[in-house]
Write a protein that binds this DNA or RNA. Structure first.
Length: 542
RNA sequence: GGCCCCGUGGUCAAGCGGUUAAGACAUCGCCCUUUCACGGCGGAGACAUGGGUUCGAUUCCCGUCGGGGUCACCA
């Protein structure tokens, strides 16, 4: 009996690997084209760090006319979640990071290199496991979890490295006859990779982001096929990325230390390894300590959060690009109106250490993103968001013509308003254009004095005044009631007046909007219209 | 603990042997002849630390300290 017989005993029906090699030929792509992927577990939840990786992968494939695909890594049934794939597909859709191939819904996929869901690739993994078995590069292991526990305890006691390797790898040296016997007796087993590595040797590796790194060789006989018949991540990674002809693996840097193992797997399988780019995670400051953004503790870890909050998609992407490439910010400043697509993304410009997530900065970007939009775009986005998350706002926005005028206030000029960072800011920023204030929070001038201001101003207010005439009238009112006509005069001798024209303006502003801070009063009054302005004055005076 | 990665202002970050050590966000002040949001000008604020190497180190090497990752039949 030899390895081949043992392999046949274990996987009697597995196809020869040549079948798959032919079925998934090397891609016919232009020189330098990058094939990369986003390969999450189907938990339905997309972490902002995952989106970050997907964005980077998408950028790299786009700029090289390559292929970006979505593969679902569902080899751990314990973590399986209902509609997990849809959640991922939809999140990518929300951020317009669309895969060229791979999963496109819970069950559908497109592309010629599938299945793109690992649980449906079982026979493929078996074929390659069998291939390894035939060459004696893998073996069945009969150790139970309890056995492994005993081994680990001994190793800890002896203060040596833990793991299944070298002399500790009991099943590695079983003869094929012994192994076959156990299998025939129905003993449960898994398949392990027989590592040819030696811990006292180093391997050098060049990571596209981290640069040159050196590790001890892998000597762990890791499991490649689990008791449930599905592959472990390591094995699936090697088989899938080879068969899908991935050229660039972009993933979180928690995988960096697995590189020696993965490289070994590729070599032993006879595959050409891809290039790797290990991305630092996005961190958060937690009482002075840096830690990864946590799904459980930090709502902003989930990409769904940004959608719910109404933070513009473009802003999230710009923020991520900002972290990813320090050149982005300069590029954006030089090209304020260009599409993100035109930015030339550079992998080697990426930071090697993890950035702390900065919501303030994100919101600042959101502010700029929205300020660049036309009233129509603001309207569309706000309505879109409102339809899903704020019915009241959606109702308010029903009168589109009016809404467009409201959003058009101080917009479209060289210095557009920057008071909206996210769509959820919209309502409180425009509500006074729809509802009359119910209480007036005056500043310096209030009570009867405020009433006098409005009474006087009502007499001279004319909707048809241009801005200059409009403001001159407010100055006239100020002067008539004994306030300083010019702010500068007042500031020079504040004791001479009870207030100045600005204070008078504030009264008008508060009566009209209920607040002391608003955009340009003239424009607001124009949009509100003569009748509404008059009505609000009257309601205040009476 | 072993192995690996990282360490420039509060944050993101340029710089990579000789610089007054950029810029952005945040912060503070002034200005923009009504507020705010802008915009303009200005201020404060950093090379973790100790040794080397060098004529000269933020830049190179080593140690220390600090942070992070990884050591599963999870990915």
């Amino acid at each position: 009996m030899d390895y081949k017989d043992l392999a046949n005993l274990i996987f009697p029906n597995a196809k020869d690997i040549s079948y798959y090699e032919e079925k998934y030929p090397v891609r016919n792509l232009p020189e330098g084209a990058v094939v990369s992927r986003f390969a999450p577990s189907p938990t339905g939840f997309v972490h902002i760090g995952g989106l970050y990786q997907a964005l980077v992968a998408k950028e790299m494939t786009k700029k090289t006319n390559g292929v970006f695909f979505l593969r679902v890594e569902d080899t751990d049934q314990k973590r399986e979640v209902e509609n997990g794939v849809s959640g991922i597909v939809n999140s990518l859709k929300d951020f317009d990071i669309l895969p060229d191939e791979g999963m496109i819904s819970e069950t559908e996929e497109k592309g010629n290199y599938g299945p793109y869901k690992q649980s449906e690739r079982k026979e493929i993994y078996e074929a390659f496991a069998k291939y390894l078995l035939e060459q004696g590069k893998a073996y069945p292991c009969f150790c139970t979890p309890e056995d492994l526990d005993v081994i680990r305890k001994k190793q800890e006691g002896a203060k040596v490295r833990t793991g299944y390797y070298g002399v500790w790898a009991k099943c590695r040296n079983l003869t094929v006859e012994e192994a076959a016997e156990k299998i025939k007796n129905g003993e449960p087993y898994i398949i392990r990779f027989k590592s040819p590595g030696r811990e006292d040797r180093k391997i050098k590796h060049h990571d596209l982001i981290k640069g040159n790194v050196e590790f001890p060789e892998n000597d762990q006989d890791i499991v490649i096929i689990k008791a449930d018949g599905l592959p472990t991540y390591h094995f699936a990674h090697a088989v899938d990325d080879h068969l899908m002809r991935t050229t660039l693996v972009i993933r979180s840097d928690e995988w960096l230390s697995s590189v020696p193992l993965h490289l070994q797997l590729f070599y032993e399988l006879g595959f050409r390894p891809p290039k790797y780019a290990h991305i630092s995670p996005i961190m958060k400051n937690d009482n002075g300590n840096k830690r990864k953004l946590s799904k459980r503790k930090d709502p902003e870890a989930a990409v769904s959060y940004y959608k719910e909050e109404g933070i513009p998609v473009e802003a999230v992407k710009e923020y991520l690009l900002n972290i990813a490439n320090s050149t982005f910010e300069n590029w954006r400043r030089a090209n304020p109106d260009k599409s993100l697509d035109e930015f030339d993304f550079q992998l080697n410009k990426m930071s090697v250490s993890g950035a702390l997530f900065d919501m303030v900065k994100l919101l600042d970007i959101g502010k700029n993103v929205i300020s660049r939009m036309t009233a129509q775009e603001v309207y569309d986005n706000a309505l879109n968001w409102a339809n899903e998350y704020d019915k009241d706002l959606a109702k308010i926005l029903e009168d589109k013509d009016y809404a467009l005028k409201v959003f058009g206030i101080e917009r479209g000029n060289k210095k557009p308003r920057k008071d909206l960072s996210k769509w959820s800011d919209v309502k409180e920023n425009i509500i006074y254009m729809y509802e009359e204030p119910t209480n007036y929070d005056f500043d310096k001038i209030s009570g009867e004095d405020a009433k006098k201001v409005i009474e006087e101003y009502s007499k001279v207010y004319d909707y048809n005044d241009d801005k200059q005439a409009w403001f001159d009238k407010i100055k006239d009112v100020a002067e008539k009631l004994g306030y300083a006509r010019e702010v500068k005069e007042y500031k020079a001798n504040p004791e001479n007046w009870p207030g100045h024209v600005g204070d008078v303006s504030t009264v008008i502003r508060v009566v009209l909007t209920g607040r002391r801070n608003t955009p340009d009063m003239y424009e607001i009054m124009q949009v509100l219209g003569k009748d509404e302005v008059t009505k609000r004055f009257e309601n205040f005076i009476k």
